[in-house]
Write a protein that binds this DNA or RNA. Structure first.
Length: 780
DNA sequence: GAGTTTGAAACT
DNA sequence: CAGTTTCAAACTC
């Protein structure tokens, strides 16, 4: 299976994290395509925050004994001890194990994430591990010091070396219980994760979660960003299991600096913890840029997520009560890098038999079976997993089909562990998974488009969706993220098994979910009920969010541009054409390749092509002005031909217009504005009147429906309904009370009541007349 | 709705 | 960078 090229991966925001299920082959994608890593994939997948390649290939455990207390990760990989994690036909990830002490997790697609679903060998609980993304981290596991060193695949050479040695079992030593993660930050400083020492010797089964052995803890350390511990509620189904093998951790570590985003930080953590032999002291010691965070947990079986270098840590440290199973000792930590320094929201898919509400679970699988399971309650439905990335303007939603998201646990005995069966790990491929930023129903602050390499974070209320990302491997296309329009949504492109992400306007997510594509691409069928709700939009060309939100974009009518040029407003706004009148439209997912080329062309021509034209003006000038200015010659800049006028801003000094009348003192402009205002008021009034009338008519029609049905030859409207009678009577009674309270004479009271009755009759007649006329107009 | 006008985008 | 062409929206009838 083809994989997305590293170049393409480099284009994808690191925040985009998707998880795919890792399954046994029997649970693999319907087509059975297991992604195999390609040599070319071993080449460094460029990441903007990568440390120099030379330093990425890490071998931090020279003293590691290759065979001591180790188990191969790919127990059943027949030929090369390589198991592939296929993240679906579009998001393949392969993990190649090397026989050397170095254990290489090599996602063939950097942006792919993996959701590993394994079946606990003992408890039979199915656990889903999410979070492999951009996992280009060959890591070594030190047998001497309990360290696991994760690092990116710096070069193909390293990977090839790892591959060549794949025939040999992976050696993971548990002596140190230290976990070293490198290449996470730009600084190149490794992160050392100190694995908990359970005190148990390797190979000795230990029950985790019971009264004797508290649940193991592991700490997830992030570089930069605030920390927020994602509570992971262990469920009753998290039974204690005995581990015999490595434990897999998948960490997603954001690199970006924390932002003002209110989105909680979450991690996608997949961990297969082999707490056996680990000392009771659970310590995660990340070394970040020389900083070492060491936190000791009194309860070795507890998982702690710690955010490092989080200046704005507002979330209390929460412990994830993970029922970590005691196992032989080695841990596999996969670090999912993100350019965001802020931690990312953990999104893991839960697939258990437990009666748990929408949850996301961390599935843990190991040679000895699943070691623990993490259940993360979700606010959203199981099939729509939101991934909020603080520090990013994106909100991601992972669309998970029922195959993986809601798959039931596989009751399996101790001998049915998927990993134990040594079958290639294959991420559920048939499922449609998308990591797409979405804007929740409520408008949130988002981060303006910034270079991924930039640590600066600019918050903005803009929520406009733009499209930029390639869905197919297009190495030659490298959009300038600096100029990318905000609000990019990533989604897997349809139809292609080798495609990665497609840039989808956020609102298109809903479209996708409801479109046949999703249904077709999804092996299990994607519930349409997971539609994402309303989404805010960015100010468009200076218009406020409210304006753009309340006013749907006009459909384009392009005929010759294929909607792949800036002539097309949809394309220019970074949106897919939807409900447009265009012909031969290529501005859709089906033509993602062409579209991406067009995007690149536009960006090459004008790096700011997708930036809003209306921006902040110079100091002393209007707050809003056209970025380039207009060039009007004949319209006097008083027609919508003029982009300044269209944006309801005045021309500025940078405009090159001739005969401009779009300035402050222009009488023509004032007149036009007044007329426009008056017209707008009229339109609003008319709209309100129509709305009110329609409502009334609808109400009347509903009330009179039985009468209509029983019709006869009578007037189709019987307005003297029970409700009308009651209302009339109430009016009359009220009038009588009023007369009584005011001590009116009886004659006067009767007069008032009759008068009120007359008013009621008039209202009834009036309504009847209107309804009749309107009904006649609509052939009622 | 068809035709015209207009100016931005694209092209040379 | 300037001139020309293309294009689709805005506008007019």
């Amino acid at each position: 299976m083809d994989v997305v090229s590293p170049e393409l991966n480099s284009l994808l925001p690191d925040e985009i994290m998707d998880t795919e299920a890792i399954e046994d082959i029997p649970h693999s994608q319907p087509d059975g395509t297991a992604v195999q890593s390609e040599p070319g994939d071993d080449t460094s997948v460029p990441m903007e925050t990568d440390t120099p390649a030379a330093s990425e290939n890490v071998n931090l455990c020279p003293d590691a004994a290759p065979t001591e207390h180790t188990q191969t990760l790919t127990t059943s990989a027949p030929a090369d001890s390589t198991f592939s994690i296929s993240t679906g036909s579009q998001l393949p990830i392969s993990i190649s194990s090397a026989s050397s002490p170095l254990l290489t997790l090599k996602p063939s697609m950097a942006t792919s994430t993996a959701t590993t679903r394994t079946t606990d060998s003992v408890t039979g609980t199915t656990v889903t591990t999410s979070g492999l993304q951009k996992l280009t981290a060959p890591f070594t596991i030190s047998a001497a010091n309990h360290q696991i060193i994760l690092n990116k695949v710096a070069s193909s050479q390293a990977t090839e070396a790892a591959k060549s040695a794949a025939s040999q079992p992976q050696v993971i030593k548990q002596d140190g219980q230290k976990l070293l993660v490198t290449a996470i930050g730009k600084s190149g400083q490794p992160i050392v994760l100190q694995l908990p020492h359970t005190g148990n010797k390797p190979g000795v089964s230990q029950t985790v979660g019971d009264s004797k052995s508290p649940a193991p803890q592991f700490k997830v350390v992030t570089i930069g960003g605030r920390s927020e511990l994602k509570p992971v509620a262990g469920s009753a189904g998290n039974q204690v299991t005995t581990l015999q093998a490595q434990q897999l951790k998948t960490l997603q570590i954001a690199k970006k600096t924390p932002t003002s985003s209110a989105a909680p930080i979450k991690f996608i953590i997949t961990k297969t913890v082999n707490s056996k032999g680990l000392s009771p002291q659970t310590t995660v010691s990340p070394v970040i840029a020389g900083r070492v965070l060491t936190q000791n947990s009194p309860t070795p079986s507890k998982v702690t997520v710690v955010s490092v270098a989080s200046p704005t840590s507002n979330a209390s440290q929460k412990s994830m009560t993970l029922p970590v199973n005691v196992a032989l000792g080695q841990q596999i930590l996969t670090v999912q890098q993100s350019t965001s320094a802020s931690p990312v929201k953990v999104a893991t898919s839960q697939t258990t038999t437990q009666n748990i509400k929408p949850v996301q679970s961390v599935a843990v699988g190991g040679v000895g079976g699943s070691q623990f399971k993490t259940i993360i309650p979700l606010a959203t439905q199981p099939n729509v997993q939101q991934i909020q990335v603080p520090g990013s303007r994106f909100h991601y939603v992972r669309l998970v089909t029922a195959t993986t998201a809601s798959s039931t646990g596989q009751p399996s005995g101790p001998s049915t562990s998927s990993i134990q069966t040594a079958k290639p790990m294959v991420v559920s491929t048939g499922a449609v998974r998308m990591s797409v930023p979405i804007v929740p129903a409520q408008t949130i602050k988002q981060v303006a488009p910034k270079p991924l390499t930039s640590a600066a974070v600019v918050t903005t209320t803009q929520t406009q969706q733009r499209l930029i990302m390639p869905a197919t491997p297009l190495p030659q296309i490298q959009p300038n993220f600096t100029n990318l329009p905000p609000g990019t949504v990533l989604a897997p492109a349809p139809g292609g098994g080798n495609v990665g992400y497609a840039v989808v306007p956020a609102q298109y997510v809903t479209q996708l979910q409801q479109s046949p594509f999703v249904t077709l691409a999804s092996s299990s069928g994607f519930p349409a009920s997971t539609a994402i709700q309303t989404q805010a939009r960015l100010p468009l060309n200076g218009l406020s969010t409210a304006e753009t939100t309340s006013r749907p974009r006009k459909p384009c009518n392009c005929t010759k541009s294929q909607c792949l040029k800036l002539y097309c407003d949809c394309f220019a706004n970074g949106e897919f054409c939807n409900n447009c009148n265009c012909n031969n439209c290529f501005n859709n997912l089906e033509h993602e390749t062409e579209r991406l080329k067009a995007i690149k062309t536009c960006l090459d021509r004008n790096p700011e092509a997708f930036k809003p034209k209306i921006g902040k003006g110079k100091e002393g000038e209007s707050d809003r002005r056209h970025s380039k200015g207009c060039n009007c010659k004949r319209s006097g800049c008083l027609k919508n031909y003029c982009e300044c006028y269209e944006a309801k801003i005045m021309c500025s000094s940078i405009c090159k217009c001739i005969g401009c009348k779009n300035f402050e003192e222009s009488p023509e402009r004032k007149t036009l504005m007044h007329l426009a205002d008056a017209a707008e008021v009229r339109v609003q009034q008319q709209t309100a009147a129509k709305t009110k009338l329609s409502s009334q008519i609808s109400d009347l029609l509903m009330r009179t429906a039985p009468v209509i049905s029983s019709g006869g030859g009578r007037l189709p409207y019987t307005f003297v309904t029970k409700e009308v009678l009651e209302a009339t009577c109430e009016c009359l009674l009220e009038q009588a009370k009023k007369a009584e309270q005011t001590h009116q004479p009886q004659a006067e009271a009767e007069r008032l009541i009759l008068e009120e009755f007359g008013h009621c009759l008039m209202r009834i007649i009036s309504s009847a007349g209107k309804a009749k006329a309107d009904c006649a107009s609509i052939n009622c």
